[in-house]
Design a protein around this nucleic acid. Sequence first.
DNA 1: CGCATTTTGTTCTCACGTTCACAAACTCCT
DNA 2: AGGAGTTTGTGAACGTGAGAACAAAATGCG
Lengths: 249, 249
Amino acid sequence: MIGWVRLESGAVTTRSSTDAARVIPEATVARLPVYLRALTALADNGIRTCSSEDLATAAGVNSAKLRKDLSYLGSYGTRGVGYDVDYLRYQIAREIGVTQDWPVVIVGIGNLGHALANYSGFRSRGFRVVALLDADPALVGRTVADIAVRPFDDLDEIVREHDVAIGVIATPAHAAQDVADRMVGIGITSILNFAPAVVAVPEGVDVRKVDLSIELQILAYHEQRKANGGAEAAAAAADGVDAAGGGAA
Amino acid sequence: MIGWVRLESGAVTTRSSTDAARVIPEATVARLPVYLRALTALADNGIRTCSSEDLATAAGVNSAKLRKDLSYLGSYGTRGVGYDVDYLRYQIAREIGVTQDWPVVIVGIGNLGHALANYSGFRSRGFRVVALLDADPALVGRTVADIAVRPFDDLDEIVREHDVAIGVIATPAHAAQDVADRMVGIGITSILNFAPAVVAVPEGVDVRKVDLSIELQILAYHEQRKANGGAEAAAAAADGVDAAGGGAA
DNA sequence: CGCATTTTGTTCTCACGTTCACAAACTCCT
DNA sequence: AGGAGTTTGTGAACGTGAGAACAAAATGCG
């Protein structure tokens, strides 16, 4: 009976190139880029093979979680040996979709937009900034990171021309929803929002939010709890609650 | 027997000013700053009272979750009426710890560090940048956001002088672990890491990681799945998996 | 005063994510 | 070839989080 449950033997592999029961949990998806980076670091150090323990250490997770995460992609390791660094790296990159190049537009070229435009990590990881947009006429025409800033109204044209699917919002909070609406209207289906505001989008559009001050506030909360070394903190620590959450990596 | 298990009846309320079984789930802690911002927005619009439904909409969550989150803090609403905006705002701010001012240092004044130093959202939310540090002598002495950039070696002195508990790392990846070690060594217990690297810290130190390209990679994954409009995507959609994860806000 | 209405706070159930523990599978050595 | 040693992949137990649903408490109206 157990033999029948295994999915990668014989008949099943005759499916299309991408294989069977492919529902990767969101938590796993969020860690795949971390593994990818760790593998790249290992490869740069000339390491050809690694165990789940090695990779887990490099990625800052425990090895059981790593193995389970990888198991959602397929069986890319060899028991008793470990993983081939380059092979696994390619498989993860393919799964995430960074073997191809993704064009992105950045809207809002203030402090943060400026920094994002100059951030080399995008380019090196499969993302290409095809345009910088800003509604402020004073900024339009300036060149940032070798890219000319264009008026926000050019969004339609640019998105159509480059077939852009991913947009980055780096505007002040009050402009964020308008920008998002406009992006969605043109067919952008993934948004990375740096503006400190909640943006509502229709179903089918993904939004991820990066909020600098929220991260600090979360740290402040834990910091405050640590500082209150009183009775309640002690009680919490006794339960092992202290190290919970964003704790030791 | 069940009666004995209940924790908040009678005697327990005679504890110290902060009340009893105070274990706020990490997921809730992460949302409190969002509620805080939504409340501030409501207050700015002159709204004095709101229902959980109103606030939930403003914060982009559902009202049941909001009420449950708030219930961990205490009973600050009035049944049949709703919440007093200012009162609730103060309670959340106090819980997070942003009624006081938190001094922070930023290490690494490159693209991103520059943007962070200029980010007004920190100051307005209870965080004060007390120093900018960089190891590069060429940057030291420059002024960014009205703050002079100082050599990294001044870290000890600055942290002691201002009693800094929170450090921000905005260096290149290869320097991140060194900076973190140094920070931890001086007594910093909360780190916000923008460098694209995993930093290991001892227990008791909180690290939060903000990684721009990882966020894009997560979006790329979902984008790729949407694009593969084939059989597997259809099967996933039938399960309602499509909108999962970072989906509609 | 009592009743209908509103809205909170809480309980219950289910789904998701993490961790443990172990069998399966591979290598290496004798 | 066979056994000892390694390491993966996964089943099962556990803990946390989300959402539905409802009881409790407040208001307002007749």
